[in-house]
Design a protein around this nucleic acid. Structure first.
Length: 807
RNA sequence: GGGCCUGUAGCUCAGUUGGUUAGAGCGCGCGCCUGAUAAGCGCGAGGUCACAAGUUCAACUCUUGUCAGGCCCA
């Protein structure tokens, strides 16, 4: 029995009996303090070693080993009971630990079916739970039961069968972890973890507290532990191979299952009996931990291969494997080779159901993966997972919506880029020989450069095992490809003749698509393979997944060109924003766009890309200016990062002064001057790097500013521009009508228009443009019964058209 | 009870060694564009960075505590 060392116990006289119990428990047994008399108070420590007569007569022989003397244990409390705990080392870990080095034998008088054994003759063969009533009755009859009560406490149940479990001591084989713990910690220090905190956190802490590993199981199925023991002594041998087993026993086994190897015996070399295998099989985690060796049958085969491939470059498993695979791999590798079993490990988090709960078979709170794959595709599912926090060891809430986003945001646009290429390549019967070309068009050189950048960015992220960031670059690239390269190049593919520029466009798009599918192959293996099968040349590998991963060629990269295109795209984006703010639709041509920047380099770049800007923004002219003062106002803010370190406490006062700087003063700083600044508690020599300039668009100007770039629109719509815009509206409507009337894009038409006199003048002024764009052979000014009426603002127009060969 | 992780827009998530207008995608509203697109583009609304205290000239960021969620262990 165990006592708490510092708990105060009382000897109380109750009639003719004397009881010992914790003082704090008295009130649980006596309603009235007058019912008892305290004889003595003693601490648990003082009572340690007191002999007692056990409730039952069993195991009397262990009296000599002090089995029936009190012990002290820290876990004893006065929360319930008497404050004295019956202790059975065969049925509880705490109990076992208390008695560990006392010399008291561990007894466990129940069999594998949890029935009492011979050692408890009165209840022999009775299932322990069924004996409760009889035991209570007996205690009562013998006058040993003082009080009986039921109380609620947690109890272990089998998670499969939901049956209550009995905790009992069994004899086991252990790996002595304390002997190799340091090696394991050292091995772990050589591993790179994703996410990194697991290394010293969850896994590191687990290793520090690692306890001995029970590797034996009392089962039938499993790998037999290869230990043979003499049945007449403690002599034993561990067998390392079939060959060794044959040497000992003369039997060569093919099948290593329990029922075969258990038959194998040989006379014990110590002459005291027969060598028989111990009955246990291995914990299956032992085999998981042995994977690096077992998978190649090392050391019996593939010795060289193993030595060149161990430790593994990387492994990947779930966060729950801290005490599973990660751990057992580490134990075996550290013990056998003094190394880690893997150099890198990506730990994924748990995939939770849409409701945020763990996916569960019994709750059925998840979509069938087969349905998901059938509906959205395996690539979409795979990319959704790879692009989520789950690859960084965090939880992920699964949702069909998330997968749809991947489909809409990446897979379909990606496929459309490919499909655009295929459509026109088929029309023009284009076939690439797969040899890289050096195109002249800056747009081609730009996207080729971006493709090389893609390779190096993705490679860099993959080397760091940052899958979602790697994917980010791929998504960005496909967006550039679709919404800038292809959009800006479309007209090059429409031309009817196969000129050099068109061929270069094809070669470029082909090459870029090839690069993209190679880079994206690990993320979206199916769609990329599908594209590959159609694009590959004879000499290329049979499958995309048999190709080497691309290596970036820095010679193709033109960082300056990439930067130029970025500035151009920014200017265009700002121009579009301006149009949107002032309700000037793109179809309406405008006189000019003003671009203002103090940066001479930026100005040069934008001039170079003038054509693109003119076309994208539908303006007649781009005018460059450097004096942005006309369009924007400056305000200065302190550059806290630069000034903060030196100014310290004075930062606030100085910042206030800086915000008061005039436009003139700011300009002088921009021109390289140094300003002397006095503030409350000190002074400062201010230079350009000490401030951050903010630009504000002046009121009533159609101007937009972003960083150093300011863009303005000349929004005056002249009569001529209005006419041109109107004609473009008509063109658009005719194109829609062509579609509505199911005309082929190549069909020629007869056109009939009608409307006001002003409209007629407008149409006449831009007649040629109108005819070319709509593939019209002729134009008649009349209204027919089939004419469709359209209007833009106060302009009305009647349109009719017919296919030329129908008339 | 202990260890580790997470908490930022309606949703899913970025946010470098602390530096002053906290970003993206989706969704929503409005508009534009369209002879590749079950498309695309622009603008807009939407935030007490879970909460509190502390350190600091300065905190989404560092420290401590509280709350909520998750995983592992007991």
């Amino acid at each position: 029995m165990a006592l708490g060392p510092d708990i105060v116990y009382t000897r109380v006289k109750d009639g003719n009996e004397v009881y010992i119990l914790a003082k704090e428990r008295l009130s649980a047994y006596y309603k009235d303090p007058g019912d008892y008399e305290i004889i003595e108070e003693l601490t648990g420590k003082e009572l340690e070693g007191t002999s007692y007569v056990p409730l039952f007569p069993y195991f009397k022989e262990f009296d000599k080993q002090n089995a029936f003397k009190t012990l002290v244990a820290d876990y004893v409390t006065v929360q319930d009971g008497t404050g004295i705990v019956h202790t059975a080392p065969g049925f509880g870990e705490d109990d076992y630990n208390v008695m560990k080095n006392t010399g008291i034998p561990v007894v466990c008088p129940i069999d594998a079916e949890c029935r009492f054994t011979d050692e408890v003759p009165d209840y022999k063969g009775v299932f322990v739970k069924d004996a409760d009533k009889a035991i209570i009755k007996r205690l009562k009859d013998e006058g040993k039961l003082v009080k009986r009560e039921n109380y609620l406490h947690s109890y272990p149940f089998c998670y499969r069968t939901k049956e209550p479990l009995i905790y009992r001591a069994i004899s086991c084989w252990f790996v002595d972890i304390s002997k190799i713990k340091e090696k394991m910690i050292a091995a772990n220090n050589q591993v790179d973890w994703v996410p990194s905190h697991i290394k010293t956190g969850r896994f590191g802490k687990w290793l520090e507290g690692a306890r001995d590993w029970a590797i034996s199981r009392n089962r039938y199925w499993g790998n037999p532990i290869p230990i043979w023991k003499c049945d007449g002594s403690d002599y034993m041998e561990v067998i390392g191979s079939r060959e060794e087993l044959k040497e000992k026993s003369g039997v060569m086994v093919d099948d290593l299952h329990k029922h075969f190897v258990d038959e194998i015996t040989w006379p014990s070399p110590d002459g005291k009996g027969t060598m028989r295998r111990i009955p246990d099989v291995l914990d299956c985690w032992f085999e998981s931990g042995a994977m690096p060796y077992a998978q190649v049958h090392y050391p019996f085969e593939n010795k060289e291969w193993f030595e060149n491939h161990f430790p593994a470059d990387f492994i990947s498993e779930g966060l729950d494997q801290t005490r599973g695979w990660f751990y057992t791999l580490t134990i075996l590798a550290a013990a056998l080779f003094d190394k880690p079993a893997f150099k890198n490990v990506i730990v994924n988090g748990l995939v939770l159901a849409e409701d945020g709960k763990k996916m569960s078979k019994s709750e059925r709170n998840f979509s069938d993966p087969k349905d998901i794959i059938d509906t959205f595709g395996a690539d979409a599912l795979r990319m959704f997972l790879m692009n989520s926090a789950v690859v960084k060891g965090e939880d992920l809430k699964y949702s069909d919506e998330g997968i749809k986003d991947v489909l809409k945001g990446f897979i379909i646009p990606f496929w459309n880029a490919y499909s655009f290429f295929v459509t026109y390549a088929n029309i023009d019967d284009f076939k690439s020989d797969g040899v890289p070309k050096e195109p002249d068009n800056p747009l081609d050189r730009w996207i080729l450069s971006e493709a090389e950048s893609l390779i190096s960015e993705v490679t860099e992220q993959l080397d760091r095992y940052d899958l979602s960031r790697a994917l980010g670059y791929i998504v960005r690239f496909v967006d550039l490809l679709n919404n800038w390269y292809i959009r800006r190049s479309r007209r090059r593919f429409w031309r009817s003749e196969n000129d050099v520029d068109k061929l270069q466009a094809y070669e470029t798009l082909y090459s870029v698509l090839m690069t993209t599918i190679h880079v994206a192959a690990p993320f979206v293996p199916f769609i990329t393979e599908e594209i590959y099968q159609n694009l590959k040349t004879e000499s290329m590998p049979e499958s995309l997944h048999l190709s080497d991963y691309p290596v970036a060629n820095s010679e193709i990269r033109d960082l300056e060109l990439e930067k130029k295109m970025e500035i151009t795209r920014q200017a265009v984006s700002m121009g579009r924003a301006l149009r949107s703010i002032h309700s000037l639709k793109i179809r309406q041509p405008l006189k000019s766009l003003y671009i203002v920047t103090r940066d001479t380099k930026e100005r040069a770049v934008l001039r170079e890309m003038e054509d693109i800007i003119i076309e994208e923004l539908n303006v007649k002219d781009v005018i460059f200016k450097e004096n942005e003062e006309d369009l924007v106002e400056y305000k200065a803010k302190a550059n806290f990062k630069v000034l903060g370190k030196t100014l310290g406490k004075n930062m606030k006062a100085a910042a206030e002064k800086i915000e008061e700087l005039s436009m003139m003063e700011i300009q002088s700083l921009l021109d390289g001057a140094t300003l002397h600044l006095d503030y409350d508690s000190g002074e400062l020599e201010l230079k350009e790097e000490g401030i951050v300039i903010q630009r504000f668009e002046k009121e009533n100007l159609k101007v937009l500013n972003e960083g150093s770039l300011t863009v303005g629109l000349d929004s005056e719509i002249t009569e001529e521009l209005l006419q041109e815009g109107t004609v473009r509206d008509i063109v658009r409507s005719i194109q829609n009508l062509r579609k509505e009337r199911n005309l082929e894009v190549t069909d020629r038409i007869n056109l009939k228009l009608s409307g006001s006199d002003w409209l007629k003048v407008a149409v006449d002024s831009f007649k040629e443009h109108l005819l070319t764009e709509t593939l019209a052979d002729n134009l008649v000014w009349e209204k027919t019964e089939k004419s469709v009426e359209l209007n833009w603002g106060d302009v009305n127009c009647f349109i009719d058209l017919s296919r030329v060969n129908q008339v």
